[in-house]
Amino acid sequence: MVVVRTALAVAALAALMLPAQAEDRSVLMNCKAMVERASRDASAASEAELTRCRQVIREWALRDARTTVDEEGKPLR
């Protein structure tokens, strides 16, 4: 019983970690466009899609705030 419970906990943790991979910038651009469309048209996207896109935008904002170089390796400041 303990082994099954541990295996389920490990599987659930692994499933949660899969979507935590870094998104590329095209995903960010698509999400920004989707949120913009949703602000004009309430039926443009589902609430789950909007929530995911808002999370992607937040993650990119945090990532960009910590970055000292751009995508080509040139200093930002």
Rank of each mutant, 00 (worst) to 15 (best):
D70P: 02
V10A: 04
S46V: 06
R63F: 01
M29I: 13
T68Q: 12
L13W: 14
L76S: 02
K74C: 06
A44N: 10
R54I: 01
M1A: 12
A12R: 11
A14V: 12
K74E: 06
K32T: 10
L28D: 02
A12W: 04
A38C: 07
V35H: 04
L50R: 12
L62V: 09
E59A: 13
S26C: 00
E36I: 01
D41N: 15
R63V: 00
L28H: 08
A33K: 14
E47F: 13
V10Q: 08
T67S: 15
D41H: 07
R37E: 10
S46R: 07
D64E: 14
W60D: 10
C31Q: 05
R52Q: 04
C53S: 04
A9G: 11
R58V: 09
M29W: 02
A42D: 15
M29G: 01
L76I: 15
L16E: 11
L28W: 08
T67F: 08
N30R: 15
L18F: 02
L8M: 12
I57H: 01
A7I: 02
L62P: 00
A11T: 03
D70Y: 14
Q21R: 15
L76H: 01
V27L: 08
E72C: 01
R77C: 04
E72Q: 14
E47V: 13
L28E: 09
N30L: 15
S46D: 09
L62R: 05
Q21V: 13
M17K: 05
C53I: 03
V56P: 01
K32E: 15
M29T: 10
M29C: 03
A22P: 12
A42S: 14
L62W: 00
L50S: 08
A65W: 11
C31P: 02
M34S: 11
C53Y: 05
A45Q: 04
V2D: 14
A38F: 09
A12N: 07
A61F: 08
V4W: 13
W60N: 07
T68H: 09
G73C: 01
E23Y: 12
R40V: 12
R66M: 10
E71H: 06
R25S: 11
E72V: 04
P75K: 07
P19L: 10
D64F: 07
G73I: 02
A14C: 09
M34I: 05
A14Q: 05
L76Q: 04
D70C: 07
T51G: 15
E23Q: 09
E59W: 04
V4C: 05
A22C: 06
R25L: 03
V69G: 00
T6M: 13
Q55C: 01
E23H: 07
R40M: 11
E36P: 00
L76N: 02
N30Q: 14
E49H: 05
I57N: 01
A33F: 11
A44C: 13
L8A: 08
R58Q: 14
A12H: 08
A45F: 03
Q55K: 13
M29S: 11
A61I: 08
A20P: 00
L18Q: 06
A48M: 10
L50K: 10
A44V: 09
D70G: 02
R5N: 08
E72T: 05
W60C: 02
S39A: 14
R63P: 01
G73D: 01
R63L: 03
A65L: 11
C31G: 04
A33H: 08
V27E: 11
A15C: 09
K32F: 02
R52N: 03
E36A: 14
A38W: 10
K74P: 00
